[in-house]
Amino acid sequence: MNAHLTVTDLAIRRGGIPVLEGVSFTLQPGRALVLRGPNGVGKTTLLRTLAGLQPPLAGTISMPPDAIAYSGHADGLKATLSVTENLSFWAAIYGTGGFAPVLEAMNLEALQGRLAGSLSAGQKRRLGLARLLVSGRPIWMLDEPTVSLDAASVALFAQAVRAHLAGGGAALMATHIDLGIAEAEVLDLAPFKARPSTAGGNAGGRGREFDEAFA
């Protein structure tokens, strides 16, 4: 699988206001990149932009089609469906087959028949991450994946990420804790904070995407 992601000179916005600009990096297969930066710097927005949920202001994102498995703050679990039903739904959506090995990898076998609503927060998170394994996509985009996981579960998660990287996958994570993944590099987003002076650079002519055209 091809997990090559190249981002060049990307500018993104949140609520009509530019938050990051000039973001460039390359993610090679088998590597992981950890996004760092203070709250509100735009980690979530960057991940959502890369996942294709919102258009970038400027710059290019090049990657193979259908490469990304996105995991946001919410896990997208249905409380009234069982663990198996939740997973088999996503397996069907992504067109991948068996999810039994995934249950094992995420230590969810014992919980198979339980309704997702009756799981603890950490167990839910594990189920949400199991969805990534089921997706069969090469590039994982994880927004705070370790929230509400205990130490053992974090280790389990790190192990899953490492296995994914070893299989030629890649991962992009916004997280504050050290996962102990040797392959991971760190990208600090603070230097890319958008500055107002340059944000209006394309304000002339047709006054494109940003409100700066009005100023």
Binding site: L53, Y70, A74, D75, G76, I93, Y94
Partner: peptide, 16 residues
């Protein structure tokens, strides 16, 4: 409901 629990985000990035 799908919007609140994040399923809609995931469906929007899914292959369908």
């Amino acid at each position: 409901l799908d919007f609140e629990d994040g399923s809609l985000d995931l469906l929007a990035t899914a292959p369908i």
